[in-house]
Write a protein that binds this DNA or RNA. Structure first.
Lengths: 332, 332
DNA sequence: TGTAAAATTGTGAACAGTCACACATGGTAT
DNA sequence: ATACCATGTGTGACTGTTCACAATTTTACA
């Protein structure tokens, strides 16, 4: 029961001009009087017209699209793996890299481009509901990578708080009792869930919360945060760092101060990036497989596209702890 | 003087069937007799028909495209930056991630998708000339990222051999005379040019070439290569490693063997990835700005698209040496 | 062999824009 | 005043494909 999209002719009728004039307006043609343009714009707005990009490309033989041809190989794994999976399933893969304020407009133009499915990879909390999304995108299937656990939206996530629990419990099991934390950015829900997992694990073990310093997931911020932590003078024997990049920065900060890892302080990271095994010392961390997440998300999205009845679900992948050399029992 | 593309009707005339039958064939519809299908396929082949994807999308309202919506932020910088630049210039950005054998088919379907421009990011030598490319893509503008210096193709490159020269000369200036090398994959022209820069610099300084071990740019291969190098027993005081990832692996291999960097052996890398400053010791390396390269390439591509007369050129960016803690004069 | 069913093939129309051109109006230079 | 031009607007034709349906041929089976 899909009502058909309004066309230039509908707009023309509404605005009392010819369809050609509407065409001129949507192409920012000169030779349209300001008054007429105004009227057409109002009509477009009022009936919710979106130009049919396929028809435009068909007619003009121009798509305004640039395609990057990349050979399968080891770099830029995440986006790359998704593109590859999409291709294997018979879909083209395009990227819309936007700032947060372009979010809405990007979604609502998707339907005019006949995008079959959208993959959302937000890094901050989206304050839109699934219903909002559906309305914005005109019902185009959406799968989100990374979302709060239990969120009512088709999504693929790693259980962040579980990962944080594994990391924190590992420290506790080693005998640590003064465990600080370097968190990710506050608006990021992965970061928040990692924080909660850390906090709850301490609480469940009857251990008081340690200091918590906020970073932004960047190498530099990890370096800064660790410096702050050390210079605060607060006693601590272990730090849970919310991602591996920050952990790398943290290790540098400790090394510069002559503090030994893991003898003086144990460090646990999160993500298990390929470099983690080569940090000094090799980093104990929580493994998430981004490629798997991307692949799973694409496959699910294609299922949603091709099977109307496919259920809304959240796929929760379980991270696991990888113990290496950056953790040890505290000095006695 | 563009001859217009053949359509289903042209194919139909050629094959002696109706256009609808042609449509059935290109959509893999059942209900077409094998003989007819065969005949239509031959006709398609013979007149070089490619379905007009815009018309298909227009008609079916399905694009077979998945779009990833990514927020501007620090991750996956390279593709991301290009997508962002393209958007700012009014273009959509899509990725075609292919294996080498899909290369040709990907290029020749580009014209049927009305892609306005192609960005080639090969990681191995392409054995096609610019003319071949132009013919394959039906004249669609192409810009290649990374190519041999002086190649006759629109391209944006970093002067790889210059970078290698800077690195090697730095080692020589410090007093090193036994300088080995860990190279990238042999088929990669960046890797080859880095090797040549290294070789020529030694030659120009009248220093005999050191050992050369091939890696594949991966962390692991750097680790392996350095292990091999050390265990060969050949005396050496410095190693030029063809990229930072391998250098990281190399540092690990040395550390495991109790060999001190830079006291026993100096190491120079290539790329200056963000992590390089946090290696132990911080890595002396050659800086290339990938974002700049991506941005430059997109801007040039758009110029080629929008201005027929824009000249074919190769933009050569100059890398620079970043000296950190992994290099020092050799032990006396 | 007849007849229904299935398989194969063909015809007309529709999709939503843009292009080329036509036309009307009003201002300006001669 | 006349011719010319710029501006603003409208009309008809066209793009290449697929859909719905019709027509024809072949197959299956009583």
């Amino acid at each position: 029961m899909k009502t058909k999209r309004p066309t230039v002719r509908d707009v023309a009728r509404e605005a009392g001009v010819s369809y050609q004039t509407v065409s001129r307006v949507i192409n920012n043609d000169t030779h349209v009087s300001p008054a007429t343009r105004e009227r057409v714009m109002a009509a477009i707005e009022s009936i919710g017209f979106r130009p049919n990009r396929a028809a435009q490309i068909f007619q003009t033989e121009r798509s305004h699209t640039i395609e990057a041809v990349i050979f399968y190989g080891g770099f830029n794994r995440f986006l790359f793996e998704m593109a590859h999976t999409a291709h294997q399933l018979g879909y083209h893969f395009s990227i819309s890299a936007i700032s947060e304020d372009e979010f809405i407009s990007s979604l609502d133009s998707a339907s005019s481009r006949f995008v079959d499915g959208l993959l959302l990879i937000p890094m901050v909390e989206l304050n839109v509901t699934y219903d909002d999304l559906q309305r914005l995108t005109d019902g185009i299937p959406v799968v989100q990578i990374g979302a709060p656990l239990g969120a009512n939206i088709p999504s693929v996530i790693y259980a962040q708080s579980l990962g944080a629990r594994l990391a924190t419990q590992h420290l506790i099991d080693l005998g640590h009792r003064r465990i600080a934390e370097i968190t990710g950015p506050a608006l990021n829900y992965d970061a928040r869930d990692r924080h909660l997992g850390y906090r709850d694990t301490l609480r469940d073990n009857g251990i008081p919360a340690g200091q918590s310093i906020a970073g932004d997931y960047s190498l530099e911020s990890g370096y800064q945060a660790m410096a702050t932590l050390v210079e605060s003078g607060e006693p601590l024997t272990a730090v849970f760092v919310a991602n591996d990049s920050m952990a790398m920065g943290a290790l540098t900060a400790l090394r510069e101060r002559g503090i030994s890892v893991p003898d003086d302080i144990s460090i646990v990271g999160f993500d298990d990036i390929p470099e983690a095994a080569h940090f000094v010392p090799a980093l104990t961390t929580v493994r998430q497989d981004f490629n798997l997440m991307g692949k799973t998300a694409i496959e699910y999205l294609v299922r949603l596209i091709e099977d109307e009845g496919a259920p809304i679900q959240q796929t929760v992948l379980h991270p696991k702890l990888v113990v290496r050399g950056s953790t040890a029992p505290p000095r006695t």
